[in-house]
C-alpha cells in the first residue's frame, strides 16, 4: 500500500535534484551572479534605497548612456551592508556614495571630519579594485536643525551659540546617534553643551521634523539636502568646529573602468552643489517626478547631455 504514493514523490525529488545540479553548474560559483560580469561591456549603476541617492545614480547613468555605454540600473539596493559586497565583487560598477559615511563604514575609528582629509583617507580605505572619482561640492550630511522661532528667540545660528541658551536642549535623531561622535558626546566635547537625547528612528524623516516643529525636541538631526529644511523654516546650525563628518557625494567605480569614465562623471560632480542637490530632491518630494525625468531635465539644463 505505502509504496505507490511514494513513487511520484521520489521522481519529484530526483527532478528537483537534477534541476538543482544544472542550476548550480559544478557548484563552485554563485548561481545568481551574471555569467561573466564586465564581459558584455555593460556598466552596472547601483543606488541605495534612498530616493536622493537614486537621483544621483540616474545622473551618472544618463551621462554614461549619452556617451554610448550600455547601462544596467540596479537601484534601491538597501544600505551599505547589502551593496558594498556587490561593489567589491564587481557585480555593480558605479555607485553614488557619501564620503564620510562610507569612510566610517570602512574605518569605524576614523577621526577626520573635513572634506579633503575624509576623501584622502577614503582612497586608502577602499579595496584596491574600487576607486573614488572626484567628489562633488554637494553634501548630504547630518545637520542639527532648530525652528526659526527658537533661533530668533535665543539668537542661535551656530552650534557654538547653544552653550548660552538658558533652557534645556533636547536633541532628537536616530537611536545610534547616541553613540556617534557627533551625537550628544560630540556636542559636549566640541561645544560644551549638555543635551538630553530622544531617539526617533526615522532618519530625519517626518517624525523628526514634526518633533522639531511642535517643540517636543529642541533640535533634530536632518540630512542637509532635505528640501523640507527650507520649506519648514528650519535653521540649520553652523558647525564651526567641524564636528560633523563631511559627506560629499562621490562616485565609487570599479578600478578598471575608472579611467574610461572619469571625465564624464567628473563633469557631473563639478556642477553638483548642495543647493542643486536640494532642488533635485525637491522635484522628487514635491513634484513626485521619477528620478529619470529629474535627471534628464537637470543634465539638459547643465549642458551635460548631447
Amino acid at each position: 500500500m505505502s509504496r505507490i504514493p511514494n513513487r511520484p514523490r521520489l521522481a519529484l525529488g530526483a527532478a528537483a535534484l537534477a534541476a538543482a545540479l544544472t542550476l548550480t553548474g559544478c557548484g563552485a560559483t554563485d548561481p545568481l551572479a551574471p555569467a561573466d560580469p564586465g564581459a558584455t561591456g555593460t556598466i552596472v549603476v547601483g543606488s541605495q534605497a534612498y530616493y536622493s541617492n537614486e537621483i544621483v545614480a540616474e545622473l551618472y547613468a544618463q551621462v554614461l548612456e549619452d556617451a554610448g555605454y550600455d547601462v544596467e540600473r540596479r537601484y534601491q539596493i538597501g544600505q551599505r551592508d547589502a551593496y558594498i559586497p556587490a561593489l567589491e565583487s564587481g557585480e555593480v560598477d558605479v555607485f553614488p556614495e557619501y564620503t564620510g559615511n562610507l569612510l566610517q563604514f570602512l574605518e569605524p575609528g576614523t577621526t577626520s571630519t573635513d572634506a579633503a582629509s575624509v576623501y584622502s583617507e577614503l582612497i586608502d580605505a577602499l579595496p584596491d579594485n574600487l576607486v573614488p572619482l572626484a567628489y562633488a561640492a554637494a553634501q548630504d550630511a547630518d545637520s542639527y536643525n532648530i525652528t526659526l522661532e527658537f533661533s530668533n528667540q535665543y539668537g542661535v545660528t551656530s552650534l557654538a551659540d547653544l552653550a548660552g541658551v538658558p533652557v534645556p536642549i533636547i536633541v532628537g535623531g536616530n537611536p545610534e546617534l547616541a553613540e556617534r561622535p557627533y551625537g550628544p558626546k560630540g556636542l559636549l566635547e566640541y561645544y560644551g553643551v549638555e543635551v538630553e537625547f530622544v531617539a526617533i528612528g526615522d532618519s530625519g524623516g517626518p517624525l523628526t521634523k514634526q518633533a522639531i516643529s511642535d517643540g517636543t525636541i529642541t533640535m533634530g538631526d536632518v540630512y542637509s539636502a532635505d528640501p523640507d529644511i527650507a520649506t519648514s523654516d528650519f535653521v540649520t546650525l553652523d558647525d564651526p568646529e567641524g564636528m560633523f563628518l563631511a559627506q560629499n557625494l562621490v562616485p565609487i567605480v570599479s578600478a578598471d573602468l575608472a579611467d574610461d569614465i572619469r571625465a564624464l562623471l567628473d563633469a557631473v560632480s563639478e556642477k553638483l552643489t548642495t543647493d542643486e542637490l536640494v532642488s533635485l530632491n525637491l522635484r522628487s518630494t514635491s513634484e513626485q517626478l521619477s528620478s529619470a525625468a529629474i535627471a534628464t531635465a537637470w543634465l539638459t539644463a547643465m549642458g551635460l547631455l548631447g
Partner: peptide
C-alpha cells in the same frame, strides 16, 4: 537593537 543595527 535599533542602535546597534546601523553601528553593526
Amino acid at each position: 537593537i535599533f542602535t546597534a543595527i546601523p553601528l553593526r
